[in-house]
């Protein structure tokens, strides 16, 4: 099963290595990872997606909690939550294709964030499937390169992440 873990950690040097090192040392897989400081900057939020049955995930969660700089671990897949990721796509924008690219961008409520004579950079945010779909539409038009963030996620409603 797929799990989205939200890990709150002390923002100190080496903390990301401790977290990712734990996954490799114990043979757990990380599918995606995103990390940034939150609040006043003394802590960071790591969102990670991993696969494993419930016993493996329980063990991962416990092992993460055991790391000294880890403050809290929440498995968001236990309840309703929102997941988002961001993608930047550079598309070759030949004169006659420009309108078509803009139209597709519009459908996905994405934005053109850079435009030159030869290319556009389009920024798309949303769930994985939306990003995949957008990419699929743009591919035939000549995608030059693409970068994607890991997922970030948050519990819905009153529950705290």
């Amino acid at each position: 099963m797929r799990h989205v873990l939200s890990v709150l950690v002390n923002n100190e040097p080496g903390v990301l290595t401790r977290v990712s090192g734990l996954f490799s040392a114990r043979g757990f897989n990380i599918e995606s990872l995103s990390v940034a400081p939150v609040g006043d900057g003394t802590s960071s939020r790591i969102t990670m997606v991993s696969h494993g049955d419930s016993q493996i995930t329980e063990q991962i969660t416990k092992q993460l909690n055991k790391l000294i700089p880890v403050i809290r671990v929440v498995d968001l897949t236990d309840g309703p939550h929102v997941e988002r990721e961001l993608m930047l796509i550079k598309v070759a924008a030949e004169r006659d294709m420009r309108a078509e690219i803009m139209r597709i961008a519009d459908i996905f409520r994405s934005r053109v964030v850079d435009a030159t004579q030869v290319s556009f950079i389009i920024e798309v945010t949303g769930g994985s499937e939306k990003l995949d779909a957008c990419l699929a539409m743009l591919s035939p038009l000549g995608v030059v390169e693409m970068v994607r963030t890991g997922k970030v996620a948050m519990s819905r409603g009153e529950k705290r992440t």
Partner: peptide, 11 residues
């Protein structure tokens, strides 16, 4: 005392 020892190998 260590939650990771619990149900690691044996339920």
């Amino acid at each position: 005392i260590d939650p990771t020892s619990v149900s690691k190998n044996v339920k």
